[in-house]
Design a binder for these strands. Structure first.
Lengths: 234, 234
DNA sequence: GAGACACTTTGATCCAGCGCAAACCGCGGC
DNA sequence: GCCGCGGTTTGCGCTGGATCAAAGTGTCTC
């Protein structure tokens, strides 16, 4: 394992307000890992031996039901923590994390959490802010699933992805990792068939452009109107 | 405002491991409030001036969508914290809280949070455990809404209520506050009509007994089997 | 550059659950 | 003890999306 440079994590939300010396101390405890596409970072129900920071790539957090159905809880972007079960008093991961592309992550032993949180209050509060934000997000999705039609839910999901990982191109804003119809279906509680139909319909209207494992949002505003349930003319 | 006795909160999860003197100090900062049935404790979007502990009664946490649909996020039982937006770095309440029956709550000024959390680490960690549990719960509901049929969702919702607030009677386990078909519908993303039909069907099969604003679960095990999607014979 | 595999599109059918409408209580108030 | 209101039941028709089925199509391998 090579020495980790503090520039890797300087300025990231969880580490804000820490001195360079602090950062080095924290990094000394971490291992850096390379995760190949489709490999799992941690496994649902598995013992929470570590928590992680995504340095590069994109990770899909997935819950699998007893009967094998999958639901994508969220995507993790670079700079975000994941697998922080320990911080919440849990000893087991509530979901699996799968690399959507080749990734680089930092891993800390889980039992280090109390130590880190104690020594670096800003790290602790930063983490809890993240948790708070995710709680918000989860509850917003509950409301969405409980009240919206499929079309609106898919539109919302795309907009969330665009905001989180969108990359500007000449055609519009591209979701910056391979994402299939099936993935979108698992984010929104529908089927890949319905997602496919929606995307082709939207493409005909000029809202998006999409291809194999690829979606570009051409007209975010119109898509947003759709997500809000404001049907558009034509 | 009368002096508050520490026995009110002794032994509650958030205050575990605090000395009597600590408890008194914490209570000195709190006001106790009486909230009449159907009054709101705090309002969605409102500035988060306080956080609360429910001492007695039951509180419904409700999110309202822009177009007026309501979703019941959760019920709060005695001993639970609510309105802890401040602890999560938010300045505004993400939902409204409405008394399901006459309630008694303790209220602390929100800006006291950092102070309390700093002085009483066990209070802080206890709170974060609660938040963690709620995140879990919210994500479980996302999975439920995304993968289950209405019948299973309603069954799950009833079982959750039974576990949280069930009171044993001769007929079975009674949900211990007035709850309408509409309420159940708003917990599960369906309509009061469908809930009504389900309850009558279940009543015919001897799983539950229900009446005006009242549900008693007679056979939790069979209801659980139903919730898990294991259809029953007959 | 041929073949295979994984992803996507599209069609056809079906049904769970919604929306609407109307009747039906149980309970509190006067 | 009657009235009225808020909650509940029930019937019926309709439809958004699921399910089933099969035919395209982009991309990687050898």
């Amino acid at each position: 394992m090579s020495r980790l440079d503090r520039s890797l994590i300087t300025g990231l939300p969880p580490f804000q307000g820490m001195t360079p010396a602090d950062l080095d101390r924290v990094l000394q405890q971490a291992r850096s890992l390379r995760i190949a596409k489709d490999q799992t970072v941690f496994e649902q129900e598995g013992e929470a031996h570590s928590f992680f920071l995504l340095l590069d790539g994109h990770v899909r957090v997935v819950k699998t039901t007893p009967d094998g159905q999958q639901v994508i809880v969220r995507y993790i972007s670079p700079g975000e923590l994941m697998g922080i079960a320990h911080a919440l008093g849990r000893t087991t991961y509530p979901a699996s994390a799968v690399a959507a592309v080749d990734c680089v992550v930092l891993a800390w032993p889980g039992n280090l959490w109390p130590d880190l949180a104690g020594s670096f209050p800003s790290f602790a509060t930063g983490t809890y802010k993240t948790v708070g934000a995710r709680l918000q997000e989860a509850q917003a999705r509950v409301v969405e699933l409980a009240t919206e039609q499929v079309e609106q839910r898919v539109a919302h999901a795309l907009l969330r992805l665009v905001k989180q990982t969108g990359r500007k191109t000449e055609e519009g804003i591209l979701i910056d990792f391979p994402i299939s119809r099936q993935d979108i279906a698992e984010m929104t509680g529908t089927t890949l068939h319905t997602v496919s139909r929606l995307l082709t319909a939207w493409e005909e209207r000029g809202l998006v452009k999409s291809g194999r494992q690829k979606v570009t949002v051409v007209e975010p505003h119109r898509l947003f109107a759709l997500a809000e349930g404001r049907a558009e003319k034509g």
